[in-house]
Computed example of a mutant assay.
Amino acid sequence: MDKELRKEFREWKVEVDDRLDRLEAAQVAKDAASAAQAPQATASKKAAADAATSEKEGN
């Protein structure tokens, strides 16, 4: 019986590890997508700030 329980536990552990790996991969992909979008928003804010500064200097 111990052998059967150990086998079942190993199978369960492999399944849980696989699910965890998939979840981690999905989170990494989600974080990468968020990081890719963030610099674009920052760049546009900086460009807008630079334009406002240029207008003030011109006046």
Rank of each mutant, 00 (worst) to 15 (best):
K56N: 03
D2M: 02
N59S: 13
A52F: 06
K3S: 11
V16R: 13
K3V: 07
G58Y: 13
D17T: 10
A49T: 05
R19G: 04
E15Y: 04
A48H: 11
W12L: 12
A33N: 03
A36R: 11
A35F: 00
K3F: 05
K45H: 11
K56M: 08
K46R: 13
T42L: 12
E24N: 07
E11G: 02
E57T: 06
A52H: 08
D18S: 15
A33W: 05
E55Q: 15
T53Y: 05
A33S: 07
Q27L: 15
M1D: 14
A26F: 06
A49N: 04
R19A: 07
V14D: 15
W12G: 00
W12D: 08
K56D: 10
A48E: 15
V28G: 03
D50S: 10
L5D: 09
G58T: 13
S34H: 12
K56F: 06
V16D: 11
E15N: 05
S44V: 14
K3R: 06
L20A: 05
D18C: 02
L23E: 14
L23M: 12
V28H: 09
E11Y: 00
R19C: 07
K7W: 02
D31Y: 08
A49G: 04
V28A: 10
D17M: 05
D50A: 08
D17G: 01
A51D: 07
S34R: 09
T53P: 01
A49Q: 11
A49F: 04
Q27M: 10
A26V: 05
D21A: 07
A49V: 01
A47S: 06
A48R: 14
W12P: 00
L5N: 09
N59Q: 15
